[in-house]
Design a protein around this nucleic acid. Structure first.
Lengths: 199, 199, 199, 199
DNA sequence: AATGAATGAGGGTTCATTCAT
DNA sequence: GATGAATGAACCCTCATTCAT
């Protein structure tokens, strides 16, 4: 008699294993390169079970973004309550973003590359979170300009998007291989944009 | 005998219309969101005809990248032959990248978001081109550091990738709506990373 | 100790609510258009609970037919025990069918349209009941012909199926909206087939 | 070397074989009981080929209805142009319907039992055709009543739907097994509703 | 060069049903 | 009696690609 695999009833564990599998597969082969079947198999369950926990494939994609976005927004709010100089706030913000991107790199990679496939309903939620981040960033820069701490001859929006780009782009190349911590990278960026490259 | 309308064969025109359709559709709905049928219809031909001009769907994706990459590399080489200060060279390089990204934004968008689906053969070519760009960039920065024109306390690789990220990221937000030219954006970036934000 | 709200077990009530939900859903969206999950939700229970009360989805379909068939057969038997003229008997039979179809319209609709999906076992029971009805009908007509009350130049089987069809078809259009009672419709039919349309 | 089945390029033949297969399978196992795969296999093609000829599974269902409806409406119009007594017109109409139902019995069976699953877009077309048929029928009856040829004490709508039901119901039982032609059945019906059963 | 019929492999999703809890 | 997690088979449909015409 063949031994039948016993069913395990641990819904939370199952959900977690699906998310983990999604992160791994989406990260490795992309959203369209990974089928729900692939994900289910990697999670050690059946396709049917996947659909017991998620409504659609897309829902998993959004969840992966949310995991990062939640962390990012919370971390930012913690930084912004402090009453520092604009330079210090910007430095903190840059650290905060680079660190979050480094920590959630698979999530970020997946999201940046696949977000266009989100349907409207899901997209709206994701966009709102990006907007919050940009707004916070720009506020810090404009406060610095107004207070005279930052130079006035630069466009605040362009500067803001430039710095965010610099930080976000780390998802393309940064890996915590011990050579350099996310904080070190962030501080390098901060010096660069605050004091400039010229000796 | 009635005059028969002669069928006009214009292979180059057909090819061009396919590329145009690919750019439009890939840009709007993504590589996986656009079927070969969609592309053919948008190009005013049949699916069969598509396969007369391209071997696979992927080939079109690569071609779209190449169009941008070719322009980018040529523009860069034109800039680098000049014998300027490192600051001037960096400023020129930044202009060159931002301008190219602005001009080929659909191509860039598509490539950054879909490159993971390229098969190895194609991927190799694309990666080689990216590497060339990064190498040129880093060379300029390192020359500046060596000559004493740039500060020595920043990591050249991180700085290089930071600036490239800042420039590349414009594909996410820049649109030539008249408010600001690509050159102006580039110069904003240059001032930011050369002289710093602090007043 | 706080008084715990005692769970009330009312199996019959649950069964009834399932049947009610099945009637509503099958009627509105068809047998295949309504999932067991839909039915359970409409009945205010879980899918698991459904399977405590019914073995399969099909069982509910049969039960819905039975509810109507039982009523129909009983009503017919009540009518046929009376010792009237054939005309009166036919008139009573027509009333009886139209009234039953009107009363159990959802059941009838469902059954006529979905019976083909019954498996053999269930189908046999359902067919037997239809046969009984047809037999009773035909007996009345043949008795009328034999006794000379009805004309002899019509085929008794065709006539029988024609009248049954006329009555059964009301499931397609009759709704008790007050404009006309089932009895009135039935009597209209009776006059039509007994006395004819010609003035 | 295995012999490869050569592709045959006869689109019309393929379409016809799909329709034939659909008629057979829908008739035997119902719309929901027959998968597109089943139909394709029965038609000797692949699922992909099915979708080359039809947009959806539903489209085949509608087509099956259309085939019957087109015939029915055309036949009716041919009958109604004649300038006969109302009795003759009704008799002709009944023949026309019974004959059409007999000829297209599989189509009719399928349609009556599955029409509820048509989506709105398709349903609208089908309903319009049913309405035309009913309207023509009722017009004949009302003209007969007005002219004094038919009795005035019957509701024209109920009478109309009753006769249509009688005719339509034949799809449930009539088969041209030689014992009785559709015309004979129709004339039996005509005598029944025109002159009545009473001797 | 061009067509469009045909292929065949999957893709996402649904669903009746089972079973550990 | 009741729950809901899990199954597994099927289903409709899409799509890159091939090939006879």
């Amino acid at each position: 008699m063949a031994a039948t695999k016993p069913r395990t009833y641990q819904p939370e564990k199952t959900r977690a294993s699906i998310i983990k599998a999604g992160l791994k597969l989406f990260g490795a082969k992309g959203y369209h390169g990974s089928s729900v079947g692939d994900i289910a198999k990697a999670a050690g369950i059946t396709k049917g079970a996947y659909y017991h926990h998620f409504q659609t494939k897309e829902e998993l994609l959004l969840l992966i973004h949310q995991e990062y976005a939640d962390y990012q927004l919370k971390a930012m709010q913690a930084v912004l309550t402090e009453d520092d100089t604009s330079s210090e706030q910007l430095r903190a913000l840059i650290r905060c973003i680079v660190e979050a991107v480094g920590r959630y790199r698979p999530n970020v990679t997946i999201f940046f590359q696949e977000r266009r496939y989100l349907t409207k309903k899901y997209m709206a939620r994701a966009t709102a979170e990006r907007d919050q981040l940009e707004a916070a960033f720009q506020a810090v820069i404009e406060r610095g300009i107004t207070s005279g701490e930052f130079r006035k001859d630069l466009d605040s929006r362009v500067t803001c998007l430039g710095i965010i780009g610099m930080c976000a782009w780390t998802y393309q190349w940064y890996s915590d291989d011990g050579r350099m911590s996310a904080i070190e990278v962030a501080d390098n960026f901060s010096t660069l944009v605050l004091d400039g490259l010229v000796a």
